[in-house]
Nucleic acid binder design. Structure first.
Lengths: 155, 155
DNA sequence: CTGCATGCAAAGCTTTTGCAGGTGC
DNA sequence: GCACCTGCAAAAGCTTTGCATGCAG
């Protein structure tokens, strides 16, 4: 690893503050996940890390991702194609916008009043006490919308 | 099976219209899923069916659920605790409201304009072409909100 | 009778666990 | 030097596949 990104650094400090050691393998997982714009599966993280750290084990990826998720630094991304992938968590509660072509994940936080209103309304109609919500949008990101850039991609 | 519910009947006809035979084991899976207010995992369906049909195999449950999902009669439910459970699909696109205590699933369809507006706004801000969305609310249903009915349940 | 459906067994994956050796601090 | 971390191997789940038999139409 040549240089540690600010986000990866923050994660490592957070791990240390929680009694974890900043080992080389953890740095690799942290750097990979902190630097990704796509949600990555444990196996993808493993492959990416292994290109730098020859003896990286898949088990270590699972254990590190588990810790990062516990600390709220990373979150699981649910998609129609599967729910094994993880991405750096946003600050505060945010919603996900996922590109169905390239996998780019973008967070958005706007329209919270709208959602609050919806929750109130549904609560009144259904009798439920609503505690949390998931909102995700799926589509094609700006780059993938442009046919010229993605000739293989049919819309 | 004493009597087939209207919904189960509709599903069986739909299966037949798609070249599937209405076997006893399929009837059992269909009746179980069509009659459930909770999302059920393949294993749960298997156990429920097996109480009636002794030689039911788990494999058959997987194969039947797969067919029902293909036909859009059943949909997978994603939850923090896992994404293996299925429930009867709603007519048209609807959103889910899930009880975190008893698992009761309620659909709601209101506020589509609100969500359309949100999608337009996010689309303009992000440059994404938005194709679909997932919205789920989690909370406690009317029954589970009442402490008297659920003394074991801490809120 | 014909061909789809079924259960069993086995294979294939993903994820977790046990453990002896290694490493950060 | 101590405690935590690691990779390996194995176990544990969950899901799919192959195949001979069974059953619906």
């Amino acid at each position: 690893m040549n240089q540690i990104s600010p986000k990866a650094n923050k994660w490592l400090h957070c791990l240390e503050a929680n009694g974890c050691r900043a080992t080389m393998t953890r740095r690799a997982v942290v750097e990979t996940l902190a630097g990704s714009q796509r949600a990555l599966t444990p196996l993808e993280i493993f492959d990416l890390c292994r290109s730098q750290y020859k003896n990286m084990g898949l088990v270590t990826v699972y254990r590190t991702v588990e810790k990062l998720e516990e600390l709220g630094l990373v979150q699981r991304v649910h998609q129609p194609s599967g729910c094994q992938a993880f991405i750096a968590a946003a600050d505060g509660h945010q919603h996900l916008l996922i590109c169905q072509n390239c996998g780019l994940v973008t967070f958005f936080s706007g329209e919270n009043e709208m959602i609050e209103g919806l929750m109130d309304q549904v609560s009144n109609q259904s009798g439920y006490q609503i505690n949390s919500h998931w909102l995700q949008l799926f589509g094609y990101c700006a780059s993938c919308r442009e046919p010229a850039k993605n000739p293989q991609f049919n819309r």
